[in-house]
Amino acid sequence: MKKLLIVLMVLLGGIISAFALAARSEEMLVAGPFEDVVGAIKQGDVNSLSRYLDNNVEINISGKANAYSKAQAEIILKDFFSKNQVKSFELVHQGGEASKFGIGNLSTSGGNYRLSFFLQKKGGSMVLNELRFENK
């Protein structure tokens, strides 16, 4: 009887562990806005990035800051990434709950930048409302 109880406990523990691992793996497969933005930056993909742009976006490139409409922001970002082909982007810090931010090192053909971006919850979705490209 004792052996049967031990076997049942081990099997139950294994099943619970398998379900927990499967749930966590599924959670990791589902990318959210933050992960999508990081992926778009790594690719220099403005079209993917623009899906998350807010109606008004603050962009700061090497100390030149301004607030732009979504359409203007797309043009500014396309210009930046066409002149600065992305070599790599390494996310070094991230945080936030309702709002999220990321800070990373962007290496491009035109130089290296410290890139920070901010996502804010707005109407049930996350929008990108600030991008900063600071020369390193």
Results as ranks from 00 to 15, higher is better:
residue 12 L to I: 14
residue 2 K to M: 12
residue 61 I to C: 00
residue 87 K to L: 15
residue 94 Q to L: 12
residue 112 N to Y: 00
residue 102 G to L: 05
residue 132 R to K: 15
residue 63 G to V: 05
residue 95 G to Y: 10
residue 10 V to T: 09
residue 70 K to A: 01
residue 132 R to F: 07
residue 66 N to R: 11
residue 21 L to Y: 11
residue 105 N to K: 14
residue 59 I to L: 06
residue 86 V to S: 09
residue 87 K to Q: 15
residue 20 A to I: 15
residue 54 D to P: 05
residue 67 A to F: 11
residue 132 R to T: 12
residue 96 G to R: 12
residue 87 K to I: 15
residue 66 N to F: 03
residue 78 K to Y: 06
residue 122 K to I: 12
residue 55 N to T: 13
residue 114 R to W: 07
residue 122 K to Y: 12
residue 96 G to T: 13
residue 119 L to F: 05
residue 100 K to V: 08
residue 136 K to P: 00
residue 89 F to M: 06
residue 72 Q to I: 03
residue 21 L to N: 08
residue 115 L to M: 12
residue 113 Y to Q: 03
residue 72 Q to V: 03
residue 129 N to D: 10
residue 94 Q to C: 11
residue 123 G to L: 13
residue 91 L to A: 08
residue 11 L to G: 10
residue 104 G to W: 02
residue 35 E to V: 07
residue 89 F to R: 03
residue 101 F to G: 11
residue 37 V to P: 01
residue 54 D to G: 04
residue 48 S to N: 09
residue 8 L to M: 08
residue 49 L to S: 02
residue 50 S to Y: 02
residue 102 G to W: 02
residue 118 F to G: 10
residue 42 K to W: 06
residue 4 L to V: 06
residue 81 F to A: 03
residue 91 L to P: 07
residue 48 S to M: 04
residue 99 S to I: 13
residue 16 I to W: 10
residue 102 G to Q: 05
residue 72 Q to A: 07
residue 97 E to L: 15
residue 69 S to T: 11
residue 27 E to H: 14
residue 82 S to N: 13
residue 63 G to D: 04
residue 13 G to A: 07
residue 8 L to T: 09
residue 11 L to E: 02
residue 113 Y to A: 01
residue 45 D to H: 01
residue 86 V to I: 12
residue 83 K to E: 10
residue 17 S to T: 15
residue 7 V to E: 02
residue 20 A to S: 14
residue 64 K to H: 06
residue 124 G to F: 09
residue 107 S to P: 08
residue 115 L to G: 04
residue 27 E to G: 10
residue 86 V to Y: 08
residue 58 E to L: 10
residue 52 Y to C: 01
residue 127 V to F: 04
residue 15 I to P: 04
residue 97 E to G: 14
residue 120 Q to F: 11
residue 6 I to A: 11
residue 88 S to E: 11
residue 101 F to L: 13
residue 114 R to Y: 07
residue 44 G to P: 04
residue 9 M to K: 11
residue 14 G to Q: 07
residue 77 L to N: 00
residue 96 G to Y: 11
residue 94 Q to H: 14
residue 63 G to T: 06
residue 37 V to R: 01
residue 126 M to K: 11
residue 83 K to D: 09
residue 92 V to T: 14
residue 48 S to A: 09
residue 28 M to W: 03
residue 89 F to S: 04
residue 131 L to Y: 02
residue 55 N to S: 13
residue 90 E to R: 15
residue 111 G to V: 04
residue 97 E to W: 13
residue 87 K to P: 09
residue 88 S to G: 12
residue 97 E to Q: 15
residue 21 L to D: 05
